[in-house]
């Protein structure tokens, strides 16, 4: 969506990406506060530190392209164009949430912008992404699919099925492996044989690229190129983005499995600071960057307040949207449902 500006004015284009990354960062920080204050049910998986990957990929997609996400899906959603106000309502289980408050954080989705869902089961986005690409092929569209997986998911069987399948049928898919170092609280390399995700993709004959996932300029350039190749019938491509999950697996995670200083060392490399540095070197003054940053936080603050003010859904809506044939029967006075 920003390809025109990218060609005409690269700093202006990167500035737009910076604004999106600020929105994601603000969303994740404010969601954590809302969670700690008791406004969010369950748990949240934050995207802090990985913003450049989702932003660099999704902002090069069209609204009609599909993405499939994983359990850490807030950033992908915002980058694909989902409405953060509706997303915050979804996290707080309120009327106006993206999924009518039926799914919450882990099942965030916005089909109106091609975001086909975050997912509580790892690797299922891969197989469903393959199917979405089959649908595109069947309908003769020139859309593509981007599937986001983490490093941990490369140890699940469907990862291999999906990569093989995508190659066999030459499907229009960009597989994006965000290597954030951890599989839940386990260091992925401690449970993974071989040379890593790129080597695994190449074993299927799939072209694979590697990028510093905290460098938005690099991710954006590479993603634009790969997406154009996939869209023009070049078949699937694998993008390995090296990054770091600054926060825990979930917000409550105490990070007991990390060595002292590990998080702060990696924080030095976080993508928003690096992007701001690049923009400063390319003609933006500090006040412009500060203004953009503040605008994002102000928008999310307002989203939080708006969500807190929104009502909870009527409990009877729980019965809606199960299935057309044989929907559930509500509890009766006698008890018992079917």
């Amino acid at each position: 969506m920003n390809q025109t500006t990218a060609r005409e004015n690269k700093p202006a284009h990167i500035f737009e990406l910076y604004q999106t990354m600020c929105l994601i960062r603000a969303f994740e920080e404010k969601a954590e506060i809302a969670f700690d204050d008791g406004f969010i049910n369950g748990s949240i998986h934050q995207y802090i530190g990985q913003e450049a990957v989702g932003t660099g990929v999704c902002q090069n997609l069209r609204a009609s392209d599909y993405i499939l996400s994983n359990h850490r899906g807030h950033g992908h959603s915002i980058a694909k164009g989902a409405n953060p106000e509706a997303m915050m309502k979804e996290l707080m289980g309120r009327v106006g949430g993206t999924s009518g408050a039926k799914g919450g954080s882990m099942h965030i989705a916005d089909f109106s912008v091609g975001m086909l869902g975050a997912n509580g089961v790892l690797a299922d986005g891969l197989t469903m992404g393959v199917g979405a690409a089959q649908a595109i092929t069947l309908k003769g569209e020139d859309n593509i699919v981007a599937v986001f997986v983490g490093d941990g998911t490369t140890n699940r069987g469907p990862f291999y099925e999906a990569l093989n399948w995508a190659m066999v049928y030459e499907l229009p898919i960009l597989f994006v492996c965000e290597n954030n170092t951890y599989a839940s609280s386990t260091l992925t390399r401690s449970v993974t044989a071989g040379e890593g995700p790129v080597a695994r993709a190449k074993a299927f004959g799939m072209p694979a690229s590697d990028v510093d996932g905290n460098d938005i300029v690099a991710v954006d350039e590479l993603a634009a190129d790969l997406i154009a190749r996939v869209r023009s019938g070049g078949g699937p491509h694998f993008l390995h983005a090296r990054t770091y999950r600054v926060k825990g697996h979930i917000s409550r995670d105490k990070l007991l499995y990390r060595r002292d200083g590990e998080t702060s060392e990696n924080w030095e490399n976080e993508p928003l600071g690096r992007c701001a540095g690049w923009l400063a070197e390319n003609g933006f003054d500090e006040s412009e960057l500060r203004t953009a940053h503040s605008a994002a936080y102000a928008r999310i603050d307002a989203a939080v307040e708006s969500a807190k003010a929104a009502p909870f859904p009527d409990a009877a809506l729980a019965y809606v949207d199960v299935q057309d044939f044989g929907p559930p029967e509500p509890w009766t006075k006698e008890g018992g449902a079917s």
Partner: peptide
């Protein structure tokens, strides 16, 4: 269909 609130 359910967990995405009827979007699909």
């Amino acid at each position: 269909r359910y967990m995405f609130g009827g979007q699909a």
